[in-house]
């Protein structure tokens, strides 16, 4: 044992910076969750805080603002699932059906690009296009139509979030579907054509079943992240619509802790999110296995 450690000393040296990072910023931070059970306040050090037990969780579960944030998060998650999730699949099917490699490459390069643009810029660009003085309303006003109030309108907030994520990540999301589509066994198509199947029947009976494992895998992963709905995206725009429409669990943690200084409460909300996420990944994976799919892990 000792000799192997000495023999591999250079490897351990290689390991050091990365391992130190994970120990400090992941394991160390995991220990930091403990402040949810203390009366820590930002002015004092960690040593000055004393244990209070799980009382903070009781306060959290009795707080209507907390449940409101959870509800908003779930609502946005559901909207994303219904309106965003199928878009990359549809786009991938469209791209896959193209016979010209040049056109396909060109469109791919265009639609992947927004993925690399920061949320700050995406939100700024959306304001420029859809805002009160933006392109859309300028066009509507010039043509004698009613302008529409999108940016800063609490009722339009959640659809706006979904529209932004469709714009930013639909193209990027096609990558995994395109890979799955290219793996579909060509002889299955040939056989189904021989049996007289048209394009629709081929889609239902060959394409869809062939890429089902990938769809299930992505759904399982999405379910595990049901309480994560794009923290940066929402934080950038929450103030414009107020907490009633715009507060999600992550921004709740941010405003309670970083802004409000109630670190134990914010940490408790963070723990809640982590636990629910872990349970959901586990449950979703179980469901996937029941359905006879691979899921995320075995």
């Amino acid at each position: 044992m000792w000799r192997r450690l000495v023999r591999d000393r250079l490897l351990w040296l290689f390991l050091l910076p990365g391992l130190a990072y994970f120990l400090i910023f992941h394991l160390g931070a995991a220990l930091g969750m403990g402040i949810a059970f203390t009366d820590y306040w930002p002015g004092g050090g960690i040593g000055e805080a004393s244990w209070t037990g799980p009382g903070t969780f009781g306060r959290m579960f009795g707080d209507p603002d907390f449940w409101h944030a959870v509800l908003n998060t779930l609502e946005i998650s559901l909207l994303q699932l219904v309106f965003f999730f199928p878009v990359p699949l549809a786009l991938a099917l469209l791209l896959h059906s193209l016979t010209s490699t040049t056109v396909k490459r060109f469109v791919q390069n265009v639609v992947y690009l927004p993925h690399f643009i920061s949320w700050v810029i995406v939100v700024a660009v959306f304001q420029q296009i859809l805002g009160g003085a933006g392109v859309l309303n300028g066009f509507l006003a010039d043509n004698g139509m009613h302008t529409i109030d999108i940016i800063g309108n609490p009722d339009a907030f959640k659809p706006l979030l979904v529209a932004q994520i469709i714009w930013k990540d639909s193209g990027w999301g096609t990558i995994i579907f395109l890979a799955a589509l290219s793996q579909v066994d060509d002889t299955l198509y040939e056989a189904s054509v021989v049996d007289g199947a048209g394009p629709w029947r081929r889609f239902w009976h060959v394409t869809l079943p062939s890429i089902r494992p990938v769809i299930v895998l992505l759904l399982v992963m999405r379910l595990g992240e049901i309480l994560s709905v794009g923290f940066e995206q929402v934080l950038l725009q929450r103030d414009a619509v107020g907490p009633a429409a715009g507060e999600i669990l992550d921004t709740f943690v941010y405003y309670k802790g970083i802004v409000g200084g109630d670190f134990p409460y914010a940490a408790a909300a963070g723990i809640f999110k982590g636990l629910v996420g872990a349970v959901l990944v586990y449950a979703a994976n179980k469901i996937a296995h029941r359905l006879g799919e691979q899921g995320v892990y075995r």
Binding site: I35, G257, F263, G270
Partner: peptide, 19 residues
């Protein structure tokens, strides 16, 4: 495996801030 585990369960904003 430990590193992959941290990926599944990120510690969250407040503990990271404290570190």
């Amino acid at each position: 495996l430990g590193i992959l585990f941290t990926f599944l369960f990120p510690p969250g904003m407040i503990p990271a801030f404290l570190v």
